[in-house]
Simulated assay, not measured.
Amino acid sequence: MTGSRQYPPVMVLGCGRSGTSIFGELFDGLGPYVYESEPPFQDVLDRSETDCWAVKVPRESPGHPVDDGLSFSLDILLATHPAIQLFWIVRHPLDAISSLRIGVDQNWGHHPRPPDWQHWLDRPLVERCAHHWAHINSHGYGRVKSVAKLVYFEDMIRDPYGFALNICSILGLPPEENEAYLRKWAARVQDTNNKQFVEAVTSQGLSRLDHSVRIGRWRENLSSNDIQAAEKITSRIARAFNYDTDWLAD
């Protein structure tokens, strides 16, 4: 809390490699928030409702049911923490697919896995990544849509300071009390690798130096055949998020 004011607990959700890590790290020093990346869901349930905390995409906990596309049960979460603020961050499917390749190629290392992930293991890597993106952003987002605030990776990259101010507004945090911290976080968030860019800690092992930009990296990473394969799996869901899907014409 700042003074005697209470702020809601926060959970950052979304498909892997869609900005969940760097977005989550916004809370690692923002006002009174204490941040943790991917704690077990049971640990989230054990937290105090009156403490000021934020987490990113919790891990499944044994004995707890999960909703399709999520790593936990939304009903159980809301029954325990009714005041929690959920954020869902989405990224252009072709950029996310480009970035998902390392983790999905390593025994489908991104979680939660689609329930049919093993049936996709003999499919091309791009198709596996496309299926992961599509499943999480349809079933997972569909489950939390009514209670989560939707934000976009592209907005965060293009104007990180404005993005951070918007998050403060949603939470009721006074930005003037966090000005220095917000500027410091925003300086990390870059479309290109440069002296200011600082990658999220949990993302560093999943990166490739095979692209010069983060928005539109698919133009450097995916072939026309890759794009056609991904389009069949993701285009309907991409349009639901208002992404232009005329990809092959670009």
Rank of each mutant, 00 (worst) to 15 (best):
Thr50Arg: 13
Gly109Thr: 00
Asp67Ala: 09
Gly69Asn: 01
Pro32Phe: 03
Pro39Ala: 10
Ala148Ser: 13
Ala186His: 04
Pro124Trp: 07
Arg143Ile: 11
Leu182Met: 09
Leu125Gln: 00
His139Arg: 14
Gly3Gln: 12
Ser48Ala: 14
Thr50Glu: 14
Tyr243Ile: 04
Asn242Met: 06
Leu209Trp: 01
Asp244Pro: 03
Gln118Asn: 14
Gln85Lys: 15
Val66Tyr: 00
Leu26Ile: 13
Leu26Asp: 02
Gly14Phe: 03
Tyr161Ala: 04
Ser21Ala: 12
Arg208Asp: 09
Arg219His: 15
Arg128Phe: 08
Val10Arg: 00
Glu199Cys: 10
Ile89Thr: 07
Pro40His: 12
Gly216Asn: 04
His131Thr: 01
Glu25Phe: 05
Gln118Trp: 05
Pro93Asp: 04
Ser224Lys: 12
Arg101Ser: 12
Gly109Phe: 09
Trp120Thr: 15
Gln196Phe: 14
Trp247Arg: 01
Phe23Thr: 01
Arg113Glu: 13
Ile76Leu: 11
Gln190Lys: 11
Ser169Val: 00
Val213Ile: 15
Val147Gly: 02
Lys184Phe: 06
Glu154Pro: 11
Tyr35Lys: 02
Phe241Val: 08
Gly172His: 10
Cys15His: 04
Arg208Ile: 10
Ala130Phe: 05
Ser169Thr: 14
Lys195Cys: 03
Ser21Ile: 04
Val44Lys: 00
Val144Lys: 03
Arg158Gln: 14
Ala187Arg: 12
Glu179Phe: 09
Phe153Trp: 14
Pro39Val: 11
Phe153Lys: 05
Pro65Lys: 03
His131Tyr: 08
Tyr181Ser: 05
Ile157Phe: 02
Asp67Glu: 06
Glu199Ile: 09
Gly69Ile: 06
Cys52Ala: 13
